[in-house]
């Protein structure tokens, strides 16, 4: 399946991906309306420092440990994409604890959220990939992940 991959060699740490992600999942038509004057809750995060940085989001593991560990059964896998039913999440943070990539985080409402490849919002393709100015984040087919 197509996944989001990050090439840290080209990541500038500009954090545009975080803002594009937050906007894409806001449901608003305009980035200013969506993000101005508010804390943002992106599903992709820039890690690193001035010298090296890279964007981290869900790897959509072949055998996701978050799905196994979710006590409420809120996290599930559909067509290879790991998704979350927000109305089932009880906010126990177990998924946050077990995810080796730090790909899950609390949303504005407190329940957990994660990257769903922008397949469930109106963007239709990963907004972080589309908006990356240096093609450091790509969305491509590279075969199965080895875990």
């Amino acid at each position: 399946m197509k996944r989001i991959y990050v090439n840290e060699e080209w990541c500038l740490g500009c954090r545009l991906c975080e803002y594009n992600c937050a906007f894409a999942n806001s449901g608003k038509r305009d980035m200013v309306t969506a993000l101005k004057g508010k804390p943002i809750f992106p599903r992709i995060h820039i890690e690193g420092d001035d010298k090296i940085s890279y964007a981290v989001s869900c790897r959509h593991c072949t055998d996701p440990i978050c799905v196994k560990s979710c006590i409420a059964g809120a996290i599930y896998k559909s067509d290879g994409v790991v998704q979350i039913r927000k109305n089932k999440c009880v906010g126990c943070f177990t998924c946050v604890l077990v995810c080796p990539y730090g790909a899950l985080s609390p949303s504005e409402s407190g329940v957990m959220q994660k990257c769903e490849l922008c397949l469930t919002n109106s963007v239709g393709e990963p907004a972080c990939v589309k908006g990356c100015p240096n093609r450091a984040i790509v969305y491509e087919e590279r075969g199965a992940l080895n875990e």
Partner: peptide, 13 residues
């Protein structure tokens, strides 16, 4: 100012 969301991309770049 009515458009700036203070994302600080300009500052980092």
């Amino acid at each position: 100012e009515s458009r700036c969301i203070a994302c600080r991309v300009c500052e980092r770049q």
